[in-house]
C-alpha cells in the first residue's frame, strides 16, 4: 500500500507517519545497517508512530533524482551524496583537506554545531530540505592498478591517468596532486582499471577499495584528501509539520548515529587496509608531516579556486581557517 508521509492520526489522537528513506548503499552495507538501527530507534522512541522504510541500492533512483524528490517531498528521507546543481555552496562537501583525520572530520564536519554543518543546514533549508546528519563514508585515497610513486609529494610529476567524478572539486583535487584526470562512469570503473583505460581512481576510501576493487588493485594510498560525506536529509515541510518531540527524536538519533558511525568507519578503513596488505596490495600510509604539507599545498593552490563557487562569507572562512570557525 502507500505510505502516509503527510501524517495521519491514530486512535489515541497522535500523529503517525510512514516514511520512505532512499539510500545508494545496498541492504547489507555497514552504513545501511547503521541507518536501519537509527530508524528502529526512532520508531521505538516515538512509540511506533514514526515508521521509516529503507529502499537500498538506489532502488528509487540515483542521488540526482532522489535529492530533487526530497525537495518536492515525493520521497521523505535520503542518505546519499549531495547534489550541488541547486546551490553551488554545497560544494563545500567536496573541498579537499578540510580535515586529515577522523578526529578532525568528526569535530569540524559531522558535529551538528560545527560551522560546516550549520552552513550545509542553512543552505539546504532554502531548498526545502532539513539536514539531519552527515555520515562519513571513508577517508578518500588513491586506489590504483599500478604503484603510484611520490603520492604525497605535491611537486613530484605524477604521469598517471586518474579517474574522478566530473565535478570541479574532484578535478581540482586530482590536479592538486598532479595527476592527469579522466572522467569515467562509476559502473565502468572496475573494467577500466582492469583494462587500463585508467591507472587509478580518486574518491573512495580504503573500505570501498577493498570491497569493490581489491581484485584489480596493486596500490592504495591513504591520502585522506577528503572525507566522503553522505548527507542524511528530510523534506523540510514534512519535518516542520511534525510535533516538536518527534523532530528532536529524529535529529538527535541521526546526530548520534553519524557520530558513532564515524568511529566505526575509521575501524573499517583500517581493517580494509590491513586486509589489502595481506592480499599483497601495497598500502601507502603517509606521515603526519606529509598530510600537513599536502594540506598546505591545497590551501594555497586549490582552495582559492572556490572563489566563484562559494558565497563571499563562506569563501573567506575557507581561506582564513578551512571552515573551522565557531558557528
Amino acid at each position: 500500500g502507500c505510505g502516509n508521509s503527510s501524517g495521519a492520526t491514530n486512535a489515541d489522537g497522535e500523529q503517525t507517519y510512514e516514511l520512505r528513506l532512499a539510500t545508494l548503499y545496498p541492504a547489507d552495507h555497514e552504513m545501511t545497517i547503521a541507518v536501519q538501527a537509527a530508524c528502529d530507534k526512532i520508531e521505538e522512541e516515538t512509540g511506533g508512530n514514526v515508521k521509516i522504510q529503507i529502499y537500498p541500492s538506489d532502488q528509487l533512483g540515483d542521488y540526482t533524482s532522489v535529492y530533487e524528490e526530497i525537495m518536492k517531498g515525493t520521497i521523505d528521507l535520503m542518505v546519499s551524496g549531495v547534489l550541488t546543481t541547486y546551490d553551488s555552496n554545497l560544494e563545500i562537501m567536496n573541498i579537499p583537506y578540510l580535515a586529515s583525520s577522523y578526529e578532525e572530520a568528526k569535530e569540524y564536519i559531522v558535529n551538528p554545531d560545527s560551522y560546516f554543518f550549520q552552513t550545509v543546514l542553512e543552505h539546504q533549508r532554502n531548498l526545502n530540505i532539513e539536514t539531519l546528519g552527515i555520515y562519513l563514508a571513508g577517508a578518500q585515497g588513491v586506489g590504483a592498478a599500478k604503484v603510484i610513486d611520490n603520492l604525497m609529494d605535491p611537486n613530484a610529476a605524477k604521469p598517471y591517468l586518474i579517474r574522478c567524478p566530473s565535478t570541479d572539486g574532484y578535478l581540482w583535487t586530482a590536479e592538486g596532486f598532479g595527476f592527469n584526470s579522466v572522467t569515467i562512469n562509476y559502473s565502468e570503473l572496475y573494467s577500466s582499471l582492469q583494462t587500463g583505460v585508467c591507472d587509478g581512481w580518486l574518491g573512495g576510501g580504503a573500505y570501498v577499495n577493498y570491497l569493490s576493487f581489491r581484485d584489480v588493485l596493486k596500490y592504495f594510498g591513504d591520502a585522506r584528501c577528503s572525507f566522503e560525506s553522505i548527507i542524511c536529509i528530510m523534506t523540510k515541510d514534512l519535518y516542520d509539520g511534525m510535533p516538536a518531540e518527534y523532530q528532536t527524536i529524529i535529529s538527535d538519533t541521526f546526530a548520534e548515529s553519524t557520530m558513532s558511525f564515524a568511529d566505526q568507519m575509521e575501524g573499517l578503513d583500517e581493517q580494509a587496509m590491513q586486509d589489502m596488505e595481506a592480499m599483497g596490495i601495497e598500502i601507502y600510509r603517509p606521515t603526519e608531516e606529509e598530510y600537513e604539507t599536502m594540506r598546505e599545498h591545497f590551501r594555497t593552490n586549490v582552495w582559492p579556486k572556490y572563489e566563484n563557487t562559494l558565497d563571499t562569507e563562506i569563501f573567506n572562512s575557507l581561506i582564513a581557517n578551512g571552515l573551522r570557525e565557531a558557528a
Binding site: 518536492k72 550541488t84 546543481t85 541547486y86 553551488s88 560544494e91 531548498l127 566530473s166 565535478t167 570541479d168 578535478l171
Partner: peptide
C-alpha cells in the same frame, strides 16, 4: 515551472 525557479546548473 519547479525547475526554472531554481536556475539549477550542471556541476562542471
Amino acid at each position: 515551472a519547479f525547475n526554472l525557479r531554481f536556475n539549477a546548473v550542471t556541476t562542471g
